[in-house]
Measured scan of single mutants.
Amino acid sequence: EAEIKAARERAIVPLEARMKQFKDMLLERGVSAFSTWEKELHKIVFDPRYLLLNPKERKQVFDQYVKTR
């Protein structure tokens, strides 16, 4: 159900806005820029903003977040 709702939101909200919300979530959840995606996943997986991006986009935004922190 959450994935269906997220898919609707992905269709409406522009990618750039969704990427910003995802980055904000990473900051708010205290995701370490010195860790790996796999180790940090448990901090963010239950946040509704996690589903704003598809899996490939999530990883790309995380990688970008790590490089710029």
Results as ranks from 00 to 15, higher is better:
1 E>M: 15
1 E>R: 10
1 E>S: 05
1 E>W: 04
1 E>C: 01
1 E>I: 11
1 E>P: 06
2 A>I: 04
2 A>W: 09
2 A>R: 14
2 A>M: 14
2 A>N: 04
3 E>R: 07
3 E>Q: 14
3 E>C: 04
3 E>H: 12
3 E>V: 10
4 I>G: 06
5 K>M: 13
5 K>S: 07
6 A>I: 06
6 A>M: 08
6 A>G: 15
6 A>L: 11
6 A>R: 12
6 A>V: 11
7 A>L: 09
7 A>W: 05
7 A>M: 12
7 A>K: 14
8 R>Q: 11
8 R>G: 12
9 E>G: 13
9 E>F: 04
9 E>S: 07
10 R>S: 15
10 R>Q: 08
10 R>E: 12
10 R>V: 15
10 R>N: 14
10 R>P: 13
11 A>L: 11
11 A>W: 06
11 A>D: 10
11 A>I: 11
12 I>S: 12
12 I>N: 10
12 I>H: 08
12 I>G: 08
12 I>A: 09
12 I>C: 07
13 V>T: 07
13 V>K: 12
13 V>L: 14
13 V>Y: 12
13 V>Q: 12
14 P>I: 04
14 P>H: 04
14 P>C: 05
14 P>M: 05
15 L>P: 07
15 L>H: 07
15 L>Q: 11
15 L>S: 08
16 E>N: 15
16 E>K: 12
16 E>R: 13
16 E>T: 07
16 E>S: 14
16 E>H: 11
16 E>W: 06
16 E>V: 07
17 A>D: 10
17 A>H: 06
17 A>P: 14
18 R>Y: 03
18 R>E: 03
18 R>Q: 03
19 M>A: 15
19 M>K: 14
19 M>Y: 07
19 M>R: 15
19 M>Q: 11
20 K>L: 03
20 K>P: 10
21 Q>T: 12
21 Q>W: 04
21 Q>M: 12
21 Q>L: 06
21 Q>C: 04
21 Q>S: 13
21 Q>I: 06
22 F>A: 00
22 F>V: 01
22 F>L: 01
22 F>R: 00
22 F>I: 01
22 F>C: 02
22 F>G: 00
22 F>T: 01
22 F>H: 00
22 F>Q: 00
22 F>S: 00
23 K>S: 14
23 K>P: 00
23 K>E: 06
23 K>C: 11
23 K>D: 10
23 K>H: 14
23 K>A: 14
24 D>L: 11
24 D>G: 06
24 D>Q: 08
24 D>K: 13
25 M>W: 00
25 M>I: 00
25 M>P: 00
25 M>L: 10
25 M>H: 01
25 M>Q: 00
26 L>S: 00
26 L>M: 10
27 L>E: 15
27 L>V: 13
27 L>T: 11
27 L>I: 11
27 L>H: 08
27 L>Y: 15
28 E>P: 00
28 E>A: 07
28 E>D: 12
28 E>Q: 12
28 E>G: 03
29 R>M: 08
29 R>C: 12
29 R>T: 10
29 R>K: 15
29 R>L: 11
29 R>H: 12
29 R>A: 10
30 G>W: 01
30 G>Y: 02
30 G>Q: 09
30 G>R: 10
31 V>Y: 02
31 V>L: 02
31 V>C: 11
32 S>L: 11
32 S>I: 04
32 S>Y: 03
33 A>W: 14
33 A>I: 13
33 A>R: 11
33 A>Q: 12
34 F>R: 13
34 F>L: 15
34 F>Y: 14
34 F>D: 08
34 F>T: 15
35 S>C: 03
35 S>H: 05
35 S>D: 05
35 S>N: 09
35 S>W: 01
35 S>F: 02
36 T>D: 06
36 T>S: 11
36 T>Q: 07
36 T>P: 13
37 W>L: 07
37 W>D: 02
37 W>K: 01
37 W>S: 02
38 E>T: 08
38 E>R: 06
38 E>F: 03
39 K>G: 12
39 K>E: 13
39 K>H: 06
39 K>Q: 12
39 K>Y: 08
40 E>N: 03
40 E>L: 02
40 E>D: 08
40 E>R: 01
40 E>K: 01
40 E>F: 02
41 L>E: 12
41 L>I: 07
41 L>P: 00
41 L>Q: 15
41 L>T: 11
41 L>S: 09
41 L>C: 05
42 H>F: 05
42 H>R: 11
42 H>Q: 08
43 K>R: 06
43 K>L: 02
43 K>C: 02
43 K>Q: 04
43 K>M: 01
43 K>N: 03
44 I>N: 02
45 V>E: 15
45 V>H: 15
45 V>G: 06
45 V>F: 12
45 V>I: 11
46 F>Y: 11
46 F>Q: 15
46 F>D: 15
46 F>G: 15
46 F>T: 15
47 D>F: 01
47 D>H: 01
47 D>N: 01
48 P>D: 10
48 P>G: 08
48 P>S: 14
48 P>E: 15
49 R>I: 02
49 R>F: 00
49 R>A: 04
49 R>V: 04
49 R>C: 03
49 R>N: 02
49 R>M: 01
50 Y>S: 02
50 Y>R: 03
50 Y>W: 04
50 Y>A: 02
50 Y>P: 00
51 L>G: 11
51 L>K: 08
51 L>Y: 07
51 L>C: 07
51 L>R: 12
51 L>V: 11
51 L>E: 13
51 L>H: 10
52 L>F: 11
52 L>K: 05
52 L>Y: 04
52 L>W: 04
52 L>R: 04
53 L>N: 01
53 L>Q: 00
53 L>W: 00
53 L>E: 00
53 L>T: 00
53 L>G: 00
54 N>W: 05
54 N>V: 15
54 N>M: 10
54 N>Y: 05
54 N>R: 11
54 N>Q: 15
54 N>P: 08
54 N>A: 13
55 P>D: 11
55 P>F: 15
55 P>A: 10
55 P>H: 10
56 K>A: 15
56 K>N: 10
56 K>L: 09
56 K>V: 13
56 K>Y: 14
56 K>M: 08
56 K>E: 14
56 K>I: 13
57 E>C: 04
57 E>M: 07
57 E>T: 07
58 R>W: 01
59 K>N: 09
59 K>C: 14
59 K>A: 11
59 K>M: 10
59 K>P: 02
60 Q>M: 13
61 V>W: 01
61 V>G: 07
61 V>D: 01
61 V>R: 01
61 V>Q: 11
62 F>Y: 06
62 F>I: 03
62 F>T: 01
62 F>M: 04
63 D>N: 15
63 D>V: 06
63 D>L: 06
63 D>I: 04
64 Q>S: 11
64 Q>F: 07
64 Q>P: 01
65 Y>G: 01
65 Y>A: 04
65 Y>F: 08
66 V>N: 06
66 V>W: 04
66 V>L: 07
66 V>H: 05
67 K>I: 03
67 K>R: 12
67 K>F: 14
67 K>S: 15
68 T>F: 05
68 T>A: 14
68 T>L: 11
68 T>V: 08
68 T>M: 09
68 T>S: 12
68 T>R: 11
69 R>T: 12
69 R>N: 05
69 R>I: 15
69 R>P: 13
69 R>L: 13
69 R>E: 15
69 R>M: 15
69 R>G: 15
69 R>K: 14
